[in-house]
Amino acid sequence: MRILVVEDDAEAATAMVRGLTEAGHDVVHAVDGAFGLLEAQKGGYDVYVVDRMMPRLDGVGMVETVRKNGDQTPVLFLSALGEVEDRVTGLQAGADDYLVKPYAFAELIARVEALSRRRETGSVATVLKVGDLEMNLISRDVTRAGQEIDLQPREFQLLEFMMRHAGQSVTRTMLLEKVWEYHFDPQTNVIDVHISRLRSKIDKGFDKAMLQTVRGAGYRLEA
């Protein structure tokens, strides 16, 4: 995946470029919004990772211009501003996701990969398939190897998210944000318990455990 990182903090940028490169991505770094815009115009990127506060052209300005130019490449905003209104203005400017600094690197990679996946599967699929697991989004039936699985509404949403990001690590924070729409860190391992309930429904009685725990990151649904 080709990623454009627009970040004025040299050290943060170096770490990000290195980490994303090691995760197997092709990374280009621009030092501010103006250079970012120039680089984006060359095209060929799968995701833009944009810092919100930068000298010259800031992140909001850059993303607004990018969107005005008709470029629909997914954008992940990075910001030290984490309040609700900051998220709202960031998303209104045209960003697809919003990550508050400081963040765990696993979180960044998971979100970047989730964004690129969203783009690939932007179709209107009515059935999601991961291995022998099938989810019908219309009838809301879920089966594994033909066996019907009975899910609560929230478990269904959770599984849908995992299936849309199959093969990728998703973090607990991502799940809390995307499935429950909460932006805080619970002290209790609430997400783990929901995952283990879901796991007991889809993996119990099968040889292969699909819903796997990724140490230090979160979970991954494997075919």
Partner: peptide, 9 residues
């Protein structure tokens, strides 16, 4: 809904 499983766990 979020906490009920954690409690029962």
């Amino acid at each position: 809904e979020l906490y009920e499983p954690a409690g029962e766990d």
